[in-house]
């Protein structure tokens, strides 16, 4: 409750600026229309019109909310026009990529911390991998993976044998998950290397006096010490995975998912649709990161590391 007034103030300020901006940015079209018809528009008519255009430059917030409502609640979730359908396509790629990326990130970090050769060789490559623009490499991953036939999570045959049909999200899932993993493994590597190296000399010496093995040192000291670092990395990695999934949908086929919604929206000038997909993606990111935050709080509390 303490945060209520600051938060509401900021939201109110954003709303005022937004509605003002949408009047300003959409007014050109209104004036052009009026000039063509040879009529004058009063300020009241201008405001009313700029807030309810079909293809505004900047949609007003209530238009986006209405579109969100229309495309989630009023559409069947199996419909191609349902945001829930597209959101689930994106979410499945995000989560699978996040699991790939996190797993690989943790394994790489363990290797880097325990093996000098890996320490010297892997990190530069990991850094180099992140300097390549994802928008450039995503189509190539899609092309390469479709050429070798590795696109579906379960092939049509296998999925039909299991479920009786092939769920939509499984089609073309793998390249998208790989691209999502590509963006999410890096923060995990960096965070975990730092975390696994966080025990100080005294703590390592203590284990040496017990003649503890390397794996003992890992399980009882390094891994628990790295937990706070891991959760921070997971939050960044999750956001990265979502961005990766959305970007991958711009070049994947079939054209589905929030990224695809944004792309088709821009083809047809459906700005409201773009903004609705944008908000859906933002809400999804906030929820996913929020869930990790909750697990973090719970774990650190269980571990006695949060006071």
């Amino acid at each position: 409750m303490r945060n209520f007034f600051p938060v509401i103030t900021v939201v109110a300020a954003i709303m005022v600026i937004w509605y003002g901006a949408s009047v300003w940015m959409n007014s050109k079209w209104v004036y052009d229309q009026a000039a063509r018809a040879g009529t004058e528009v009063s300020f009241g008519e201008l405001v009313k019109d700029t807030w309810s255009q079909e293809r505004p430059v900047l949609p007003a917030p209530h238009q986006i909310v209405a579109e969100l409502y229309k495309s989630t609640v009023e559409k069947k979730i199996t419909s191609k026009r349902s945001l829930v359908f597209h959101g689930w396509i994106t979410l499945s790629a995000t989560l699978l990529g996040f699991i790939f990326g996190t797993g690989m990130g943790i394994l790489l970090a363990i290797g880097i911390v325990h093996n000098r050769a890996m320490d010297m060789s892997v990190m530069p490559w990991a850094i180099a991998s992140q300097t390549v623009p994802i928008i450039a490499i995503a189509p190539m991953i899609v092309v390469v993976m479709s050429t070798i036939g590795a696109t579906d999570f379960l092939g049509k045959g296998a999925a039909t044998a299991l479920f009786g049909y092939q769920p939509a999200f499984m089609q073309g899932l793998l390249p998208k998950a790989v691209i999502a993993a590509y963006l999410s493994f890096f923060p995990v590597v960096v965070g975990m290397v730092k975390g696994l190296r966080s025990p100080d000399n005294m703590q390592l010496d203590l284990l040496k006096t017990y003649n503890a093995s390397k794996s003992r040192t890992f399980w009882s000291l390094r891994l628990p010490s790295s937990t706070p670092y891991l959760f921070t990395s997971l939050k960044i990695g999750m956001a990265g995975a979502l961005v990766g999934a959305i970007v991958s949908e711009l070049s994947a086929s079939p054209l589905r998912g929030l990224g695809a919604r944004m792309l088709t929206g821009s083809y047809y000038g459906q700005t409201i649709q773009i903004w609705a997909a944008l908000f859906a993606a933002a809400a999804m990111a906030a929820t996913l990161v929020g869930i990790i935050g909750m697990i973090e709080r719970y774990s650190l509390q269980r571990m006695g590391m949060a006071k």
């Binding site: 005294m202 703590q203 010496d205 203590l206 006096t209 017990y210 003649n211 009882s220 000291l221 628990p224 937990t227 571990m303 006695g304 590391m305």
Partner: peptide
């Protein structure tokens, strides 16, 4: 052979 116990300058207990 774990012949000794060692006490450091700081307690160095594991917080978890």
């Amino acid at each position: 052979n774990r012949a000794y116990g060692y006490v450091f300058q700081a307690a160095g207990l594991y917080p978890w």
